[in-house]
Design a protein around this nucleic acid. Structure first.
Lengths: 209, 209
DNA sequence: GTCTATAATGAGATAGAC
DNA sequence: GTCTATCTCATTATAGAC
């Protein structure tokens, strides 16, 4: 995590001029490939050679840029982290959750990555464990905070903000699983919206859809 | 699946008398060990040697009873399947879902197995894919059927039986994930009950707990 | 039925040439 | 920066002795 430098200070980059340094380009290419590969096969299931192939490198060529497989995953997650934090901060209102579900529908790769790593993180000393645990804490916290701001200590449905946060988080994860298995089986934004409404005690829409 | 013989015909077992044949004993011991190991490390992460160690066998001794790792998983799932079907059939009323959540709290091993395999099943040609896909179809179907029997084509909350079934299934899966990461973070039966109530449009309990 | 010995593979990682 | 060659290790699986 200490090697995460969104915009490294110029002096630390040596004599590189304006624009993205080539090395960083390559680095990003590799991270893209790694994300794709991890999303497809999980961390354990992915091989460095497969990642390397995606960028047209040999396995050893890849290892010039990252010290090892685990470091590669850490780097992928560090990059995801920035986006993640932004997205969570965007959840200032419960309506934004539907928007997130909508966006997710357009990026199955990211959804797969998170879903696979969340499960893998349960096993032994998986490198993603801390990331996932942290993420859960943040998501639920952020959601509960928003709900409390909107409804106080109890929602019209009777649920507490904490309960609602756990349920909404659970529904997101569970719906993603069903959706990944069969995208036509569930309408994620629709169902997240429905759950949000129901938890907020909204009256049933007489003619939905 | 064709090698699954819950109670093999006596004549096929040679000259063994009453009681469980020794071979079946061993088989069950191995399946127990395999379930435990798969639940701990997932299918990919588990090694045959680790399973064998749990029953006090060498890896090769184990392979005398099952032709390979994949066959071992299939056998574990086939045995789970019987229990699974019974449990799903037990969901004749939505209240039973809370009971299932309650029971799950007392068997983290089974919950882990299902959670890990559900995610792993997304990757490539995982041997559990079919099992999981099938399971989802059955669960949602069974739930939707129950809900329709109880409420007709629309629940008081406004959700259709299909929507509610997807949401309840998702919540179960998602809550299990959070619970496995931190058992104290969520009260599964409580939250499942809450979601059920809310979807059924039950009035908020003025003083819950 | 269980073991020892032993392939056969596949993966992560290192050393050093270009 | 990227490659070839190589090492090491874990794992699945087979062959055959007891």
């Amino acid at each position: 995590m200490s090697e995460q430098e969104p915009t490294p200070p110029p002096e630390a980059l040596g004599r590189r001029g304006r624009g993205r340094p080539r090395a960083t380009r390559r680095r990003d290419q590799i991270l893209d490939a790694a994300l794709a590969e991890f999303a497809e096969s999980g961390f354990q299931g992915a091989s460095l050679a497969a990642v390397a192939r995606r960028v047209g490198l040999s396995q050893q060529g890849l290892l010039h840029h990252f010290p090892g497989k685990e470091a590669l995953l850490i780097a992928v997650l560090a990059r995801r982290d920035e986006v993640d934090v932004r997205e969570l901060d965007g959840l200032g209102e419960t309506a934004a959750l539907t928007g997130l579900a909508e966006r997710n529908t357009r990026r199955p790769e990211v959804v797969r990555l998170h879903t696979l790593l969340t499960a893998e993180g349960l096993t032994g000393d998986h490198p993603a464990s801390a990331y996932v645990r942290d993420r859960y804490a943040r998501v639920r916290d952020r959601l509960a905070h928003t709900l409390r701001a909107e409804h106080g200590d109890r929602l019209p449905s009777g649920a507490t903000p904490d309960q609602a946060a756990a349920l909404l988080t659970a529904a997101m994860d569970g719906l993603q699983l069903q959706w990944l298995y069969d995208p036509d089986s569930v309408d994620m934004p629709d169902l997240v919206g429905l759950l949000t409404d129901v938890l907020r005690g909204a009256p049933p829409d007489p003619a939905p859809h």
